[in-house]
Every structure is written in C-alpha cells, then in structure tokens.
Design a protein around this nucleic acid. Sequence first.
DNA 1: GTTGTAATGTGGTCATTACCAGTTATAATT
DNA 2: AATTATAACTGGTAATGACCACATTACAAC
Lengths: 242, 242
Amino acid sequence: MINPYDIIPKYYQLANILRQKIREGEWPPRTPIPSERQLETQYSVSRTTIRQAIDYLEKQGFVYREHGRGTFVSPQKLQKGMQELTSFSEDMLRRGIQPGQVIQSIEYLLPPEEVLQRLELSPNTKVLRIERIRLGDGNPIGLQTSYLKLAEEQVIHREDLEATGSLYRILQDKFNIIPTEADETLEVTLATPSEASLLQIKAGAPLLLNERLLYNQNREPVEFVKILYRGDRYRYLTRLTK
Amino acid sequence: MINPYDIIPKYYQLANILRQKIREGEWPPRTPIPSERQLETQYSVSRTTIRQAIDYLEKQGFVYREHGRGTFVSPQKLQKGMQELTSFSEDMLRRGIQPGQVIQSIEYLLPPEEVLQRLELSPNTKVLRIERIRLGDGNPIGLQTSYLKLAEEQVIHREDLEATGSLYRILQDKFNIIPTEADETLEVTLATPSEASLLQIKAGAPLLLNERLLYNQNREPVEFVKILYRGDRYRYLTRLTK
DNA sequence: GTTGTAATGTGGTCATTACCAGTTATAATT
DNA sequence: AATTATAACTGGTAATGACCACATTACAAC
C-alpha cells in the first residue's frame, strides 16, 4: 500500500490514506484510530514514520491525541487551512455560493507609501495592482484591491486571471510562490459613495474591511490586499489553534 | 545547560533556550541559527531532540526552515497564539491599552436554543452566563456574553472573576480546562438602543460582532461567547498559518 | 462490594545510524 | 575568465530500539 520507491515520502502517503478514511466516514469523529503500534505492523513502516504522519494530520486538525488513551478523529468543524482561507473562490464554494469576479483593472503603478512599507520595498518601486469586484451568486459581495511584489519576469495577464479565476493558483503554479502565512486585520468602516455604487448599497452602509499581508514559503511578504465586504452579505470565518 | 534528570523534556528546555536567544535579539530576524549538527554537539543531545525543538519553534512561528540552506529566525509579526487571542486582557495589554471590565451579571439559566446546540447540550440544560462590559483605558469597547458548560462542582464566583479578571485563567488553574482550539466568526451589525447606551454610542452605529466557540484539550466545546465591539474603537487581529 | 495493585495498552521522549535531497562554495576544466 | 564538476555543507526521511508517563482493565485482597 505504501510505495517505498516513490519520490513522495512514506509519511505523506500514509497521511493521505488515513485522511481518506476519515473523510469517507470510515472512522467517524471521536472514534480512536488504530494505535501507533498497530499501524506500524499494518503498513510495515517504522513508528517514526507513523508518528510523522499523525503529526501532520494533527497539525491539519483531522485528529487529536490523548496521552495514554489514543489518537482520535476530530469532530468536523470549520476545517479551513490557508488554502481555503486565502482563496475567495474556495471560500465561497465551501459555503455553497457560486463565486465570480469582475476585474476592474490590472496594472503596474506606484502604490501608497503604506503598501511599500508592508511589502518591505524601497520608495519609488512599482508593484502590480489588481482591482476586482467579488461576486456571490452573481451579486457584488466585496471590493478587493491586491498589491503584488513580483520579479521582472513574473508577469500576470488579465486573461490568465480571467481563465483560472484564482490569483493564488497562478502564483503557485507559474511562479512557485506558495502562500504559507498571513497576518490579517478586520474592522468596520462605512461605504464611500463610489464604493457604495460598486457594491450596490447606500453610501454610509457598514462594511467589513479585511486587510491581509501574505507571506511566501521564505517568509517574504508577497501580497498586500484590502477587501471591503458588504456588511449584510458577508461573514468572516476562522479557526484558531493553539 | 540541558538538565537530563528534569521532568521537563529536553526538547522543550532546548526550545526555550533558543527562543530566548531570538527574543533577546542575539539572533536577529532572517539570520540563520546554528545548524542541526552544530546544535547536536553544542548541547550534547541527539538530532532527534534538536529537530523536535525546532519543530516546536517553527510551529510557534519563531523560525522557518529552508531545505538545503538552513533554519532562520522569522521576522517579528503579529506573534499571537491562542492564549493571547482568546484573552481580551492580554490582547489589550499587547496593544498598550489598559484593559478593564464591568461584570454585569453572572448566573445559571436556560440559554437560547442556539447556544445549547453549539455546546452540544441536551434541551433544558442550564449553563453559566457571564455578561461583561469590556473597557479599554477606562472606556467601553465591547459587550461580552459568555455561556459556559461546566460540571456541577465547577463553580465560578463573581469575586474570583473580579480578582483575576481573566476567565480563562480560572478555567485553566481551577478546573484544568485548557483552551486548545476555537472557531470564530466576525460580521457587522448595528447597535440596538440598549447596546448603544452601554457602549456610549448612538443607536444604529456599526458594531463588529465576534462569535467564538471554544474547545478544551479533549475537543469538547466549553464556551460559546459573543462579543459586540464598537466599530470605531476595535480592530481584530489574527495570523493564519498553513 | 470496595479497595488497592499489577498488568497491559496508549502516546511521549530520546539516542543512534543511515541515507536522500536541495544549496553553495570550491576546485578542476575548458 | 567562464564553465563545469565536485565536495561539503544544509535540512528531510526513515528504521530500530529503549524507556517513560499516563489511562484503563483485570484481579487479588480485604
């Protein structure tokens, strides 16, 4: 079942197998999964590897351990990782809402000073700004403005973005930029007339402002994004882990 | 330097030593920490232990690894874990604001149906409700309503709460309930007249509603809490990790 | 029946050894 | 001088073996 000659690590293959059993309901929430010694013989790998696989699943929130008792399947909750959190599309799909977007602009320009500082860039540096209107079931939900720090040769075209619909997929597949961490803030603001007309609400209506600074796998800031959500149509979800 | 006869695990002691060096600035951000082989000889522990310690620091966000290059000190960011996130007091102190609270009520009662469901309780079960006004530098910032699932013998008195100021400290020290996970939602609402008067704002002013379901170390829900923050005086901070 | 205790099973820690997989500096080659 | 190979790093994966700490069960003693 475990392929030792694969480039994919054993613990990773094993974690996928176990995750599958949890997702398919073979092991319901709160039930113990086989003990580490059992899995050791069952899959013919060392306990080191077993523990590494379970470590991985625990970090993802699929299982939890109790010293002296066993390892148990976590009750399904929000179940969100970075991938889903940072992706508007996946977030919406998860909630059963059809995502969409209208790309308003995509161009290189000199961003506000604040953005340069957040992206750890020197003054007078141009960055890529993408302005989008986010849709849920066809109706406007949010206004998103992204500022991206990209190398010269890393070019994003309007068509790419329209085709995939996901900025993060492009970053990952084309530029090997893997989002690994993000700092976020959320606060309340009131809609300006222009924002209001784009979101099809009244000026002065309450909005949820979500700011995010995204880091790549080397902990370098790559994107600073502001999203203005309609207060009446959006709810922010998150899971905190110790 | 590492005490082998201590009950405290070696990897944990080692992690503390390394974290200390980072906090004190001995190892500035982006600089490599000693390699795993170097630490191995330096502290006379096995590489297993070294890696376990670094795993721990990495999970806490103090360092990051780059395959083939080394392990590096993370640039300081929000630096928040569960502890700080779930504790209003610590959150405020971190921002340089003097926290405070006015306990409005603390009593056992039948909560709304929604709360019973969230706490996985059967109908007609009484829970402890705590209503508090949260203060920042003496001024009202938020209205907090907590519903707690506690055993018969787990009693919280008004005096305890007033003395420590921290509900989570009581849960941890007296009842051995350790918050390990939480699901949160954030959305915008408008202040009702009564809420407005408590928060000293106008009725209809925008508020940030933060709901949280808190789990203990066994992944059982223990607290459901709603916090209504003044939109003009509060900003929610969080850090997402992959 | 109750209590204490030993056995057993669970995850937690740690050392040792080996090799693989990226990165980078250095030496050899051209 | 530029290029290419190599060696010497780095962290990543894996097996093996040992013992510890905690929880539960079985059972003997009372």
